[in-house]
């Protein structure tokens, strides 16, 4: 039996003047999906992520999360509904320590009303933050300033902070960009392991096709603001247009050979 979609995107469109950044985008995302989003630069991947998370207002179409439209809601409301994101350039508080970043994220996720006047720094919250950092493999960086740690650590912190709200959907915008080739696989392994434990639905924008083939259960291929392929990696990555424009013939080791076991299998 097919479960109901958690996210439905219908005829989504975004225009910047005469430039069409996205058009006719239809996507249904089901709980615990692992969706890789691929495409050349300017294909509309980040525009899609920005629209789903409330950063950009679509020019047309609808985005429904658990049956209700999220159109017109600012990022903070979309976040509180359960759609969170990380960024291509990690968005952390550079002047605070890694631990303080996560404690603040947890405090903002958990405190409402007058509780926001209370000190965010509770021993319970600090302990949970340290545990989470350890799960993300950056526990030893906890007391260092976030602005001074490596890009890889900031990427993981960015994702850990996005998870503070315990989202139902997490969108990762190029989680491995700007880090060394050796760090890429380590980061994805760490992140996916942590996200598997939470059972969160994940959409990730990625340029490395080996990583897409390994971690995605489904691939959305974007080109010129449209989705040109949507399906399992072995199909989408071998779609003729995807091979021609995005993947390039023989440029990655192959979806069939490296596909990872689905998280919820």
């Amino acid at each position: 039996m097919t479960t109901a979609p958690i996210l439905e995107v219908k005829r989504l469109e975004k225009r910047f003047g005469a430039v069409v950044a996205a058009t006719g985008i239809d996507v249904e995302v089901r709980p615990r999906d692992r969706i890789g989003i691929i495409g050349t630069n300017g294909a509309g991947k980040t525009t899609f992520v920005n629209m789903v998370t409330g950063y950009l207002e679509p020019s047309g179409g609808d985005i429904r999360f658990e049956g209700r439209s999220v159109l017109g809601r600012p990022p903070r409301e979309v976040t509180r509904l359960g759609i969170c994101r990380s960024f291509q350039v990690p968005q952390v508080f550079g002047s605070r320590t890694v631990l303080e970043n996560l404690v603040m994220a947890l405090a903002l996720a958990e405190a409402t009303g007058l509780a926001l006047l209370a000190d965010p720094w509770t021993s319970d919250r600090a302990e949970r933050a340290r545990r989470t950092l350890a799960e993300y493999g950056i526990g030893d960086q906890a007391d260092r300033e976030a602005g001074l740690v490596s890009q890889g650590v900031r990427k993981l912190l960015d994702i850990a902070m996005a998870m503070a709200h315990r989202p139902k959907i997490l969108l990762l915008d190029e989680p491995t960009s700007g880090v060394s080739q050796e760090e890429k696989l380590a980061i994805m392994a760490t992140v996916m392991e942590a996200l598997d434990r939470e059972g969160v639905t994940v959409l990730f924008v990625e340029h490395d096709m080996d990583i897409v083939a390994r971690y995605a259960g489904r691939v959305l291929a974007f080109m010129e603001g449209r989705i040109i392929a949507d399906g399992p990696p072995q199909d989408a990555l071998n779609h003729p247009k995807v091979l021609e424009v995005i993947v390039g013939e023989g440029s990655f080791s192959g979806a069939r050979a490296t596909q990872r076991e689905p998280a919820d299998a």
């Binding site: 320590t97 303080e100 260092r144 300033e145 490596s150 890009q151 890889g152 650590v153």
Partner: peptide, 19 residues
């Protein structure tokens, strides 16, 4: 999981009194 290395010389462990 393998942790990514801290490739930049990070600030010394802070004794920042967060509380």
């Amino acid at each position: 999981s393998a942790a990514p290395s801290a490739t930049l010389a990070a600030a010394p462990a802070s004794a920042r009194p967060t509380r």
